[in-house]
Lab assay of single mutants.
Amino acid sequence: TGEEYIAVGDFTAQQVGDLTFKKGEILLAIEKKPDGWWIAKDAKGNEGLVPRTYLEPYS
């Protein structure tokens, strides 16, 4: 299990392996990579890379 984050903006996948999401979606951070791209999972179970700058902790 990971930590929940809320998307603060829309993001469209730029390449294969990225995860597209919309502002307000809750994402589960699976792995926090030091380069600023995290592996996350959305509510539908889709998994991919997301930019850290689009996420804020969800409580």
Rank of each mutant, 00 (worst) to 15 (best):
I39F: 11
E3C: 14
K41W: 05
E25A: 10
P51L: 10
K41D: 01
G48Q: 01
G2R: 13
V16S: 12
A40K: 00
D18K: 10
T1Y: 13
G2E: 11
K22T: 08
G48P: 00
K41C: 09
W37T: 06
E31H: 12
W37C: 08
Q15C: 15
V16T: 12
G48T: 00
E47R: 11
V50T: 03
D42H: 02
E56T: 08
P34M: 11
L55T: 01
Y54W: 08
G36V: 03
E56I: 12
N46W: 05
D35I: 02
A7Q: 00
Y58E: 05
E4Y: 15
S59K: 12
E25G: 04
K22D: 04
W38Q: 01
G9C: 15
V8W: 05
Q15M: 11
V50Y: 00
G36C: 06
V8S: 07
L55A: 00
K44Q: 13
D18S: 10
I39T: 08
G17S: 06
G24W: 05
Y54C: 15
D35L: 04
R52I: 12
G48N: 01
E4H: 14
E4A: 14
G36K: 03
I30K: 06
E47I: 15
I6V: 10
Y54M: 15
A40Q: 00
I30G: 02
Y5T: 01
W38N: 00
A40R: 00
E31T: 10
A13F: 03
D42Q: 02
K22G: 06
I30V: 10
P51I: 04
A29M: 12
L28I: 15
L55F: 05
D35F: 05
I6Y: 07
P34Q: 11
L27F: 07
L27Y: 02
E4F: 15
Y5H: 04
D35H: 06
Q14H: 11
D42I: 02
T1Q: 13
G45T: 02
E25W: 07
I30W: 05
F11K: 03
G24S: 04
I39N: 05
E4R: 14
F11P: 01
E3H: 10
E31Y: 10
L19Q: 01
W37K: 08
Q14N: 10
K33I: 06
R52C: 15
N46M: 08
E47L: 14
E47M: 15
L19Y: 00
Q15A: 12
K41T: 07
L55R: 00
D35T: 06
I39D: 02
E47A: 09
K22F: 10
K32N: 04
G2C: 14
A43E: 09
E4W: 15
E3G: 10
E31W: 09
T20F: 03
G36E: 06
N46E: 08
Q15V: 10
G17D: 06
F21N: 00
I26D: 00
G17E: 05
L27V: 05
L49H: 09
V50C: 05
N46R: 10
G36L: 05
T53C: 15
T20L: 03
K33P: 07
K23C: 12
L28M: 11
L27S: 01
F11G: 02
A40W: 03
T12L: 10
D18L: 11
G45S: 04
Y54G: 05
K41L: 10
A40F: 07
G45E: 04
E25T: 08
R52Q: 14
R52T: 10
K22C: 10
K32R: 08
T20Q: 07
G48M: 02
N46D: 08
G48D: 00
D42R: 00
D10H: 06
G36F: 05
A13P: 06
D42E: 01
L49I: 09
E25S: 08
R52P: 13
D42G: 03
L27R: 00
K32Q: 08
A13R: 08
V50K: 00
A43K: 13
L55C: 04
P34E: 14
E4M: 15
D18I: 11
L19S: 00
G9I: 14
A40Y: 03
W37E: 04
G2V: 13
D10W: 04
K44M: 13
G24P: 00
A13V: 03
A29C: 15
F11W: 14
T1G: 13
S59Y: 13
E4C: 15
A13N: 04
E47G: 05
P57F: 08
A43P: 08
L19V: 02
K32P: 06
A13W: 04
G9A: 15
E31K: 11
G48R: 01
G17R: 05
K41V: 12
V8M: 12
Q15S: 13
I6W: 06
E31P: 03
P51V: 03
D42P: 01
L55H: 00
D35V: 01
Y54T: 06
D10M: 03
A7E: 00
V8Q: 07
P57K: 10
L49S: 10
G24R: 02
K33C: 14
I30M: 09
K22I: 08
T1R: 13
K22S: 09
A29W: 02
Y54H: 14
Q14C: 12
